[in-house]
Simulated scan of single mutants.
Amino acid sequence: MKTLRSVAVVLISVIWFVPSYLIIVNAFTPSDAYTGEARWVPGGAALLANMAAAWDAAKLGPSMLNSLAYAVIAGLLAVLVAAVAGFAVTAIPGGRRVLWFWVIYAGSLFPAQAFLRPLFTGYAESGLYDTRLGLLLIYVATCIPFSFFILRNHMLTLPSEIAEAAQLDGAGWWRIFTGFFLPLSRSALAAAFIFQFVWVWNELLFGITLSYSESIRPVMAALAGLQSAYGTVGPPVVLAGALLVSLPTVIVFLAFQRVFASSLGGTRI
């Protein structure tokens, strides 16, 4: 049984890695030497040249700075709001805690496509369309439910005696939250932020729907624009651009992988 499990894990890992391998190998191929068929071995050493071509064609520099700002600001704000909500439904006495959990967490259960039409109409009428503020608002709103899920589950593991002892010493709820629960939730806060950073960085749907200016759009929207120029720049350049814009999230994940292991050990509802 153990051998079969190991074989299954290896097969799943290979199947998962094959598309990534093909992207990397074909990104090395010079654009003028690409024949239209997927290569299984490198056809050259043009990866850096293809990345440079993608950088210039899609103007990835400004869009990467935009995505960096969106990911950092939206991630921080969403995690802060989620931490307050998680504290409220775990430490503060009151009924219907499970109901409030589902009310907040349900925001991550509905498909994003269901919000596009009312969002586009509302943004167009309110002047938020094609603005950094508009994208930040929707990113914060969509990041809160899952961050709340992580932080609420973590705070459930903290001893209830912490809040009781602090109250006996005269501490208010805000003091208990900032002085005890936040410091004890640092690993969970970091994990939630990293999750949201990666999600905002890779988000495409809202980026192409709620913005069109090069000075506003996030990096994935810029990459989508590069793909629309498929016949001009060539598939290897598009693939190299995809590798280039994925590097920040890969670096962040590898640098903080221990945070995931230590913070996401279990879930409770």
Rank of each mutant, 00 (worst) to 15 (best):
C143E: 00
Y123I: 12
A82N: 12
L137V: 13
G170L: 01
L133I: 12
G170F: 00
A114D: 02
A91P: 11
F110G: 00
T157S: 13
V81G: 15
L156E: 06
V98Y: 05
Q113H: 08
Y105R: 02
I144S: 01
S160L: 14
P118F: 04
R175A: 14
I104L: 11
A85M: 10
R132L: 03
P145W: 03
I104H: 02
F120Y: 14
E164G: 08
F149W: 10
V140E: 04
E164M: 09
Y129T: 12
G127T: 11
E164C: 05
I104D: 01
L168T: 14
T90M: 08
T142E: 01
Q167P: 01
L158D: 06
I104V: 14
V81P: 15
W174A: 14
Y129M: 14
V89R: 10
L109P: 05
L135A: 03
F110I: 08
G86I: 06
G122A: 03
E125M: 11
P111I: 10
F115Q: 09
A141K: 04
V140H: 03
Y129F: 15
W174H: 12
Q113T: 13
G95F: 08
E161P: 00
L116R: 06
F148N: 08
T121V: 08
F148V: 08
A88W: 14
G172C: 12
V89F: 11
A141F: 06
I104E: 03
L136E: 04
G172R: 13
F110M: 05
Q113I: 13
G127D: 07
Q167K: 02
W174F: 15
A171T: 03
Y139G: 00
L151S: 04
T131M: 04
F146H: 06
G94A: 03
A166F: 00
L80T: 15
F110P: 00
